[in-house]
Design a protein around this nucleic acid. Sequence first.
DNA 1: CGCGGTCAAGTGGCT
DNA 2: AGCCACTTGACCGCG
Length: 297
Amino acid sequence: MKIGYPCINQSLDCTSSRTFRLASYSDERLIETVQLNLTCLQRILEYNVQHGLYFFRLTSDLVPFASHEVNQYNWQEHFKEQFVQLGNYIKQHNMRISMHPDQFVVLNSPNPQTVNNSIAELVYQASILDLMELDTTARLQIHGGGAYGDKGSAIDRFADVYHTRLPESVKARLCVENDDRTYSLLDCLRLHELTGMPIIFDNLHHECVNNGEPMREAVEIAASTWQPDRDGILMMDYSAQAPAERKGKHVQTISEELFHDFLVETEGLDMDIMLEIKDKEASALKAVAVAGSLGRL
DNA sequence: CGCGGTCAAGTGGCT
DNA sequence: AGCCACTTGACCGCG
């Protein structure tokens, strides 16, 4: 079991998510920003290794405007060697990597431009993992998208785009995550049947939207969609409901007791856990301690 | 130099 | 009807 956190490290004085306004775009600004982001990413990875955190989500902002037409610069070639070096470090330390394209990536949108933009963004994010020469256990996670009043049709449209529009580089890494209002675990299972994509499981979203599956059974269902030799073991996002906040809002800091209970409930199941908790690596470190005390690491 | 409005992109639920 | 939340705030103009 590997434990990690997404995108941002709050203990270091750098960010790998630097960007700039579209109006400020220039190739020079791009090169400068990507250089800062990659340098910081290396520092974050080193921090993670030093602290036993072997799962990490790369920010979508590593290369600003990477899928926007304003950016025609061949950053892939310019930073080729640095991506290889980062990938080597990741592989040397046996780290697991994911990326999570943001809410604008919607493969089943009725708007063709939205679909085109979404595919371009997926191609960009897959290319980051390819440039790092990571195997297909490094994944891209997206949600099912909208329902548009007819979820069955939306699911079919997703599968059609998957088969007819996505390049192999994306299909090799894509997985679908149950969300907190539209696509339940069973909806994702339908997408899995139609495409072969594994399902990345989110426990908090499952608490928000489900079809009655107990937590352990839900984890088992999601895990069964992963082919370990090709996809790696189950990836999951773990969070807990922020008390007295709207449904689905993530807590500020981990409850070690709740996390302990979750691990007990899923005893014997192998998975990598991404902590979607506001205070980032602080909670991840506590989670590592809890998992270690249960002999799960 | 710090504050705060705004930023490429979508969707749906809540107030 | 508008706001908010979402994997993650950061940029930049203005006072």
